[in-house]
Amino acid sequence: MTAHYDKTPVLQTKNLVKRYGSVTAIDHADFELYPGEILAVIGDNGAGKSSLIKALSGALIPDEGEILLDGKPVHFASPMEARALGIETVYQNLAVSPALNIADNLYLGRELRKPGILGSVFRMLDKKEMERRAQAKMTELGLMTIQNISQAVESLSGGQRQGVAVARSALFGSKVVIMDEPTAALGVKESRRVLNLIKEVRDRGLPIILISHNMPHVFEVADRIHIHRLGKRAAIVTPQSHSMSDAVAIMTGAMDVKTSNEAA
């Protein structure tokens, strides 16, 4: 549960730069995610936080600087490569297929095949094993109260669908889970469940990068908060050291960053 700030960061960037013509989206940005923490990334619109996240999830290739995974430099040419190295992203638009069932969705693109000749020659899916593992994961995350694993995702509520997407990332993410606005489209109660789920995933040892505009949610679950401004990190604060209004002040440039820089 407690984060280990003395260890090597799981995911780190140094002097990351990305330019689009004359616009600099990422301006020598540093970033560190430590084992066992929920790191929230906040920033005003246009601050470049989504470019940073895209670079971390492999959706964008930076011009300069380096990305380190467990201290070793890595280069992602695509989200697939980042995923292969254990970085899972839960996208805002969920990336689930409504007509497919929960188990199919969890394993979509990474299906298991039956052992032996059935799998190698006849390419037969191991539906039982996928359903068993999906069931185990959903139960482990406390998501199995109403769902039947062979139920179509379209019959689930927004929060439950988000649960499926989170379960998928927890099932395959071996290093990092990135969550992009996981509560943006949800009601109060469903948000609460998803926030609990995020903590549950963290408590099982996966560090999480949480991108959110919702300050109460950020201050509730985050261990540290990375505030992005003008293409780089403006400050790192914690919910204990700073108030929400401080965070908003730093985010918008109303507060002098130097005085709050050493908070973490």
Partner: peptide, 19 residues
């Protein structure tokens, strides 16, 4: 076969899932 269904159902989601 699963990928055929996923592609027809929601191509964007299928792409994000790595298909």
């Amino acid at each position: 076969g699963r990928h055929v269904y996923a592609t027809g159902d929601d191509p964007e989601a299928a792409k994000l899932a790595g298909i």
